[in-house]
Simulated scan of single mutants.
Amino acid sequence: NQTVVIPESQPPTPLAILELEGDSSFKDSSLAIEGDVPFFLSPQSGKYLLSTSKPLDYEMKSEYHISMVVQGSSSERSVIAPPQREIRVMVEDVNDNAPHFSQTDYQLEVEENNEPALTLLQVSASDADSGLNGRVTYSLDKHTSAIFKVDSVTGQLSALSPLDREQKSVHKLTVFARDSGVPPLESQASVIIRVLDQNDNAPVFSTPHFIFFIPENAPPFAQVGVIEVEDPDEGLKAL
């Protein structure tokens, strides 16, 4: 038996040269492949060239066992001899699959003034390749605020410090998943974080002192002036 190793995704490729031996009892004997496999034989000056018939895919099938049979006819009848040789073909993985996120868009709501190092969510990506080609690590876009951090191994996204809705109410992040192949392949997912309001701001007068002038003969309930108050919270919290 013989073992041949071939990288996946290669165009039709010669694998081995085979020679038919001990066929003197056969007339017009030939070598053939048994079964339906993506390989074929072509005669080459009394020998046979074994080749792939199409690119092989490691993720579909990583190993083939090719059985060879001798076909021919004796002077009396047609015969097919038992398998004469088995060739083992090992398909070698190449980095031809980028990591795939279980979902490409994540959305969540978080109340402001959260505890530091709060876990927000966990992103997840898988890679159909094997070994280092399928090992996935996570990272954030280099322009992401230092408030956020993603664990490179687990994909756990955290807010390292409290969020403030009055400073920024929506955060849009990009998370990358990269494999460890050469060259590496990567994909990305978006995370939208909406910061919910808390009643953490007291109303503030527009000025510490208000001065109004009113004529002495003003009628009852006449408007004297306007006192302005602001509250950066939203909704009922600002009324």
Score class of each variant (00 low, 15 high):
residue 210 F to E: 10
residue 79 V to M: 10
residue 183 P to Q: 11
residue 128 A to F: 08
residue 13 T to D: 09
residue 217 N to Y: 07
residue 57 D to Y: 11
residue 233 D to R: 09
residue 233 D to Y: 06
residue 178 R to H: 04
residue 181 G to W: 07
residue 19 E to M: 10
residue 90 M to R: 06
residue 55 P to W: 03
residue 196 L to R: 14
residue 61 K to W: 02
residue 147 I to Y: 12
residue 18 L to F: 13
residue 47 K to T: 12
residue 220 P to I: 00
residue 223 Q to K: 15
residue 27 K to N: 14
residue 209 H to I: 15
residue 26 F to D: 12
residue 34 E to C: 04
residue 214 I to G: 05
residue 132 L to D: 04
residue 111 E to R: 11
residue 19 E to Y: 13
residue 81 A to G: 10
residue 235 G to I: 09
residue 84 Q to H: 07
residue 103 Q to G: 10
residue 217 N to Q: 14
residue 130 S to A: 15
residue 95 N to K: 00
residue 62 S to Y: 04
residue 10 Q to W: 09
residue 55 P to Q: 03
residue 133 N to C: 05
residue 196 L to M: 15
residue 37 V to C: 01
residue 162 P to I: 14
residue 174 T to K: 14
residue 20 L to Q: 09
residue 45 S to W: 00
residue 39 F to A: 04
residue 91 V to Q: 02
residue 23 D to G: 03
residue 121 L to H: 05
residue 119 T to Y: 00
residue 208 P to R: 14
residue 231 D to I: 02
residue 193 I to N: 07
residue 108 L to M: 06
residue 156 Q to T: 15
residue 200 D to F: 05
residue 32 A to M: 12
residue 30 S to M: 08
residue 186 E to D: 09
residue 210 F to V: 13
residue 64 Y to N: 00
residue 221 F to P: 00
residue 102 S to W: 05
residue 23 D to I: 06
residue 160 L to R: 12
residue 218 A to V: 12
residue 67 S to C: 00
residue 236 L to D: 05
residue 150 V to Y: 06
residue 168 K to W: 01
residue 78 S to E: 08
residue 73 S to A: 05
residue 159 A to S: 15
residue 103 Q to T: 15
residue 193 I to V: 13
residue 227 I to S: 06
residue 141 D to H: 03
residue 163 L to Y: 03
residue 189 A to L: 11
residue 144 T to Q: 13
residue 62 S to A: 08
residue 67 S to A: 12
residue 44 Q to C: 08
residue 71 Q to E: 12
residue 206 S to Y: 04
residue 74 S to M: 00
residue 66 I to T: 02
residue 47 K to Y: 01
residue 135 R to S: 13
residue 111 E to H: 13
residue 202 A to P: 11
residue 226 V to K: 09
residue 220 P to Y: 12
residue 118 L to G: 03
residue 178 R to N: 06
residue 168 K to S: 11
